[in-house]
Design a protein around this nucleic acid. Structure first.
Length: 196
DNA sequence: CCATAGATCGGCT
DNA sequence: GCCGATCTATGGC
C-alpha cells in the first residue's frame, strides 16, 4: 500500500479533511502486529478557527499542530479520552484534521482486546474509540505519519460520496460545516447516525 | 432510538 | 477554579 505523500497533507485543513476519507490509518505494534482501518469521518481545524486548540497561539500542549504537515497531534479530552489529529498546511501555521471515525480493516482481534464489549461497528466509531483501538496515547504525539514505521497513513480509493456537516461538540463556529464523512457509512460517529 | 448523568484531569483564564 | 474537538451506562419512549 502506497503511503500518503506529504504534499497531500501540506494543504489547508479544509482541503485535507475530505481528502483523508477513504485513506487508511495503519499501525505496527511492538510485537509486530498490524492494525489498519479506513478513515470515514474527519474534522478540519483552521488557524483562525475559534474552535481550534491553536486559536490562541502555540503552547506546549498544541505544539504538534504547528509542526510540518503529517505530524501527529494527540491530546486528552475530558481527562479520559485521547484524540488523534494530523497537522496540515505549512510549518508554524497551526492547522490540523481530527480523525473521528474509521472502518476496521485489519487487526480486529487486537482492537477488540483493547475495547472489550464493543461491537465491531463501534471499535473505531468516535475519536476516543479510534485512539483506544489503535492504542494511540500521548507517547505518539509529535510522530511523523509520513516517515514513521509505527503509525502511518496509506492512500485509499477515491471517495466521491462525501457529506459535510457541523463539527461535533464544538461551541464556537458551530455554523461551519467542517466535518466530513463518507455518505451512508455505518462506521460514522455522532449522537445520531443521521447527518445533514 | 433518544436524553441525561457521571467519570476524570490537564491546561489555561 | 473551570471546562472541555468524549464515552458509557442507564432509564424512558
Amino acid at each position: 500500500m502506497a503511503r500518503l505523500a506529504r504534499t497531500t497533507l501540506a494543504r489547508s485543513a479544509l482541503e485535507v479533511a475530505p481528502a483523508l476519507l477513504g485513506a487508511v490509518l495503519a499501525r505496527r505494534e511492538d510485537d509486530g502486529g498490524l492494525t489498519r482501518a479506513m478513515i470515514v469521518e474527519t474534522e478540519a481545524y483552521e488557524p483562525d478557527d475559534p474552535a481550534s486548540h491553536a486559536y490562541r497561539g502555540r503552547t506546549p500542549r498544541n505544539a504538534s499542530m504547528f509542526g510540518q504537515a503529517g505530524t501527529l497531534y494527540v491530546y486528552l479530552v475530558y481527562g479520559i479520552h485521547h484524540c488523534a489529529n494530523v497537522a496540515t498546511g505549512r510549518v508554524d501555521e497551526g492547522a490540523a484534521v481530527l480523525l473521528r471515525a474509521a472502518e476496521p480493516v485489519d487487526g480486529l482481534d487486537r482492537m477488540r482486546r483493547r475495547r472489550p464489549g464493543s461491537s465491531d461497528r463501534d471499535l473505531c466509531r468516535g475519536p476516543g474509540r479510534l485512539a483506544q483501538a489503535f492504542h494511540v496515547t500521548w507517547a505518539f504525539d509529535g510522530l511523523d505519519l509520513v516517515t514513521s514505521d509505527t503509525i502511518w497513513l496509506e492512500r485509499g480509493d477515491r471517495v466521491t460520496q462525501v457529506t459535510a456537516s457541523p463539527r461535533v461538540g464544538v461551541r464556537h463556529a458551530a455554523d461551519q460545516a467542517w466535518r466530513f464523512s463518507i455518505e451512508g457509512s455505518p462506521f460514522v460517529s455522532g449522537p445520531r447516525a443521521r447527518l445533514r
